[in-house]
Design a binder for these strands. Structure first.
Length: 590
RNA sequence: GGAGUCUUAGCUCAAUUGGUUAGAGCGCCGCCCUGUCACGGCGGAGGUUGCGGGUUCGAGCCCCGUAGACUCCGCCA
């Protein structure tokens, strides 16, 4: 046996035993005579003590040990000298007095220290295998494993079977940009890496699998963010003969199992539900963070005959007047005020109207336009008090809501409303719109995806071409303001699917070329079905309390999609390109 | 594609209004140190201040450009 115990195992009861440990030199404290080594493995630390009077030869050797050298020591477990125990260490009551020392591998000078946090992410990603030795990452990787295992165990218990679907797949229009893989056997043709196993899982429903899941790698060639990587992992689930309530209950049970396995906590189920209209109307977001209030309040009725033209104009044009009360934030700085105005403009507002309540006075350039009744309405609905900051948005519903929603989040950050907050606020957002007008493409696009089922009662709206009003049988699950998953009941009838493609501007011929397999499948007895996909990375990020999914992936890419460790993407050999029938279109500087 | 912040020793940071030879801690090297646990003490090496240009008697600091990193917007069915 290479070792008899790990480094977080030895206790008082082992005193006197002969043991062998292996691991990394975490730190060495060399007193010239006696030398202390904290030996580390993934489980923890054990102090190893070399004493010249016990073994002069070994002690001499031990002076050369440096941080991160890999060693094996064999010796006797001994009690610590009275009064020198270390209560901070689980193994702090004992130490190892070695009779053998084997240096398995020396470590060169370290690129950065492991015992302090460093901010240079470039360097950390370049030496990712080294950075991962930090206990924080050891913990994150382990939590990720436990989350995945709990997911599999739970779904297995519910009768779901894991089926793998192809990574070499087919490019589809709409959605994210695909990663393409050139085909050697069919020159000029390309596979695409799946953005999600969406079509395959629906075809598995047609295949009679009934209950499918997969912890699936997905690929999207879009710009990166703290919570977006070009390759990421979804918990992908699909069930035949399922209604939304079935998917909700399954997801809730699964998340409960995951949080139990990882954080050892019971989460409250079922989750609350909000419709899309409610969520956006009250929080200015379809993934509301409800851990603080600052809700959007509607003042349409109160200002419908206002003499303040900005509000009146918005209402007359069919828009809304809404406000939030940032309690106690009247003292914001000029810089903060400027940034809030900037945010408002960024999301489509023409300006940002506000009231500061200071010294019992409403300080604002617009208060003079308000009647006593209007002021009274603001006062009571917003519970205005000394020190408050009221912010207004008067615009089309979606713009006003988004502006205030974004301001709400930024102000919460300024005010540190979530500092130390341990709450887990899960909710469902339901009844998403089915379609969204794209000015850029000059057509209607699917909000979720083209296979999403319209709500049955809204199908007449679809026929009446009132596309903006059609609601989808689609839902998102949100945790603390982060969308951790989304899904829908799907279309299983070929006629409805063709109609949907038609609305999306995919003509009959294109439908056959791109989705013929799916439409043919639907003609061979496709059961009603629906499902959900959860972002495993984001979920684990929240479980670990991290700010970025990079911190819960073993080998993430940087902001520009580059793996700094392996330097990919990289040039390829000309011969490889020739095999694929690919010629690069002009070198950049040629 | 756009906006913001940042870039000084291997790492984390400092350097007054633009002013002498750019400093400190950690790490590294050498010497000393027998109960530490962020061990301690003495000494040493280590810098084209991201890069290019400009203003100035003089630039780490001001200006312009450029590269890179991160965060956000666009984008992400």
């Amino acid at each position: 046996m290479y070792r008899t115990h790990h480094c977080n195992e030895l206790r008082k009861r082992h005193i006197g035993q002969q043991v062998t440990l292996a691991g990394w030199v975490h730190v060495s404290r060399d007193h010239g005579g006696v030398i202390f080594i904290d030996l580390r493995d993934r489980e923890g630390l054990t102090q190893v003590v070399f004493r010249p009077e016990e073994n002069a030869e070994l002690a001499k050797q031990s002076h050369s040990l440096r941080s991160e050298d890999v060693i094996r020591v064999t010796g006797k477990v001994a009690p610590r000298v009275a009064g020198t125990g270390n209560p901070k260490l689980a193994t702090g009551d004992i130490e190892l007095l070695p009779s053998e020392l084997e240096i398995l591998n020396r470590a060169a000078d370290l690129p950065f220290p492991l015992d302090t946090e460093i901010s240079n992410e470039d360097l950390r990603l370049t030496y990712r295998y080294f950075d991962l030795r930090r206990p924080r990452f050891a913990r994150n990787l382990r939590l990720r494993h436990q989350a995945a295992k709990a997911t599999r165990d739970y779904l297995d218990g519910q009768g779901y079977i894991e089926v793998e679907t192809p990574i070499l797949s087919k490019s589809t229009p709409e959605g994210a940009r695909d990663f393409l893989v050139p085909s050697r056997l069919a020159p000029g043709k390309f596979y695409a890496l799946p953005q999600a196993p969406q079509q395959y899982k629906q075809l598995l429903m047609v295949a009679g699998v009934e209950k499918y899941f997969q912890i699936a790698k997905c690929f999207r060639d879009e710009d990166l963010r703290a919570d977006r990587q070009p390759e990421f992992t979804q918990i992908d689930i699909e069930s035949s003969f399922a209604e939304p309530d079935d998917i909700f209950a399954l997801t809730e049970g699964m998340l409960a199992a995951v949080f139990k396995a990882t954080r050892k906590i019971e989460i409250k189920t079922p989750f609350e539900r909000l419709t899309y209209r409610e969520a956006v109307g009250r929080y200015g977001s379809d993934k509301p963070d409800r851990r603080f209030r600052m809700e959007l309040v509607d003042f349409g009725e109160d200002f419908k005959s206002s003499s303040f033209k900005v509000f009146r104009g918005a209402l007359d044009a069919g828009g809304v007047v809404k406000a939030i009360n940032a309690k106690g934030f009247a003292s914001l700085t000029i810089g903060q005020s400027d940034e809030l105005t900037e945010i408002a403009k960024n999301f489509g507002a023409k300006g940002l109207a506000f009231i500061k309540v200071e010294n019992g006075e409403w300080k604002s350039p617009i208060v003079k336009f308000f009647t006593a009744e209007e002021k009274a309405a603001l006062q009571s609905k917003l519970e205005v008090a000394e020190g408050d900051l009221i912010l207004f948005a008067a615009d089309k519903w979606d713009i006003a809501c988004e502006v205030l929603g974004r301001l709400r989040l930024r102000i919460a950050e300024y005010q540190k409303l979530l500092e130390g907050n341990e709450q887990l606020d899960f909710l469902w957002v339901t009844d998403f719109p089915l379609l969204q007008w794209s000015a850029e493409d000059n057509k209607w696009n699917a909000v979720h995806h083209p296979f999403t089922r319209p709500k049955t009662e809204d199908v007449p709206l679809l026929d009446a071409q009132k596309f903006g009003e059609v609601r989808a049988e689609a839902y998102d699950v949100v945790l603390n303001g982060v969308e951790i998953g989304g899904g829908s009941i799907r279309i299983h009838e070929p006629e409805l699917q063709e109609k949907m493609f038609g609305v999306l501007g995919v003509n009959a011929e294109e439908q056959q070329v791109m989705f013929g397999h799916l439409l043919r499948a639907f003609r061979l007895g496709a059961p009603p079905h629906g499902g959900i996909a959860l972002g495993l990375d984001r979920l684990v990020m929240l479980i670990c309390g991290e700010q970025s999914i990079r911190d819960v992936m073993a080998f993430p890419k940087n902001n520009r999609g580059i793996d700094l460790m392996s330097q990919s993407p990289a040039d390829v050999d000309q011969r490889q390109l020739r095999d694929l029938g690919i010629k690069l279109a002009g070198e950049k500087n040629a």
